[in-house]
Design a protein around this nucleic acid. Sequence first.
RNA 1: GCGGGUGUAGCUCAGUGGUAGAGCGCUACCUUGCCAAGGUAGAUGUCGAGGGUUCAAGUCCCUUCACCCGCUCCA
Length: 539
Amino acid sequence: MAESQSAPSSPNAPVTKTMDAIVALCRRRGFIWQSSEIYGGINGFWDYGPLGTELKKNLKDAWWHDIVRCPPVGPDGQTVEMVGVDCTIIMHPKVWVASGHVGGFSDLKVDCRETQGRYRADHLLVVTNRTDSGTNLMFAFMGDDKASEEQAHKRLAKAEKTTVPLSTAQYHVVRFLDIPLNEYHRVVAPEAQKPGSLTEPRMFNLMNITYVGAVQDDDSKAYLRPETAQGIFCNYRNVLDTSRVKVPFGIAQQGKAFRNEVTPRNFTYRSREFEQMEIEFFIRPETAKEWYQFWRDARFNWWQSVGLAGENLQLREHDKEELAHYAKEGAGTSDIEYRFPFIKDRGFGELEGVAHRTDFDLRQHAQHSGLGDKLKYFDQELQQKLQAAGASKEDIAAQSRYFPHVIEPSAGADRGTLALLCEAFTPDPNRPSGVYMKFAPRMAPIKAGIFPLVNKDGMPEIADKLYRELRQKWNVECDAKQSIGKRYARMDEAGTPYCFTVDGETPATQTVTVRHRDSLQQERIGLDQVGAFLQEKLG
RNA sequence: GCGGGUGUAGCUCAGUGGUAGAGCGCUACCUUGCCAAGGUAGAUGUCGAGGGUUCAAGUCCCUUCACCCGCUCCA
């Protein structure tokens, strides 16, 4: 633990860039705290303090501005059309049946205490003696794994002092789920040496369940959304009907999502409640490749623009076998990854995934909602183009109505905020704080500190006037207490890029000093130039 | 979920059965003349929580919660 000592307890203690040190600074300065701390905390939930809230808001606002209000020019040279929605966290339970979440992620799982393997209970089979005495061993195997099955048969044969193939008159295969609990001590798990290592089946539901209405029964069961995407898909028709967008266009949403992670770990990186920033971008199927590449690169560039410009950021294309169920047939999936200080195995962790989801979701909702082809997009431009080209009526009808394909750039706001924190954390033994937070000025929680050098001789009044003027546009802080060095040091740990100091010369010359966080350099500028200075630096 | 470790003031830690401490930070006042300066005064502890052993528990035992590390999981 000595090596991972966190933030400085004294001004001169050396600081190294470790996750412990970053977490300690986050706590100490009010970026991030554990939720419900006074009750001992709750695993996988985190609160943002004053500085963290500003930081996260800056990231989300930048995303909203750069994606929804002012998106980049598309690969076709056209202005990208993008609109926002803000959907509920609780949706109709059928949404999650259609999306595949209910089927795929609420399974009974069985753990092996010996091998630490985990199995889906309904995939686990057991080979056993039909007429056993109540003491014979049983051997479990994976139903979809031939090697596992053969091994179980061989081991049973050995235990029963017979040979394979086992006589079907004497031996049979049963479902693990059909074996009574009091017989588990006789079951040998796959790869295990001793019997009795399997736990009883437990429900692993990755979605949070809640109940809507005062009566809690199966009919009132609902889920907290595990992704914001489905709110977009469910409103896709409404957006088309009300906002005059045309394919290609995007719908963006920021919002909370919930997942019962098996093991929340690594500070806020894997939380059970977290915030997403998602785009579903609807396109003609044949343009999938170019739009996929466009968004992948645009999103990568965006993360660089908010301060993750170094080699800690990388773009990684998924291998085929890594692809999600909805993306198997698509143009690809890639992760934008950041090298967090805590992830040891590969070094990089996902910030955003860009996936070609094909038309999977819209088709699923078309089917489950019963709307069918009514959820298809009617492409009038394409229809006119086909008519002009002299296509047959049948072809025009068939081709101009379709389910758009979707490119989904899905980013984590909390992971992004954490990456900003990690990237900004800069140890510096030459400054009193031992560390400063080198946020890009656009992201910095506090844009400027305004200080009277000494708390007298009219300096506080001038500083206060400047403070009141600047706070109209930016989050700035005025502080007159204690020595100027302490105030600069505090601003270093908050990551404030600029400090304006009113000193003895100010009344005569109407100038203040600007102290630059990264270089520690100072310059004098006119008191009436401060607003313009910040405007230029912050964009 | 499994195994190991940790938990005392805001932070870093001392305290091995007998009155809860230090440094830093924080607050007020004084001082100040550009990088956590100095003086004076002050506030702050469910010793992670619950239970047990004991005349007496921060300290020993049990349970639990949280965090860290390694597995596992991660549509």
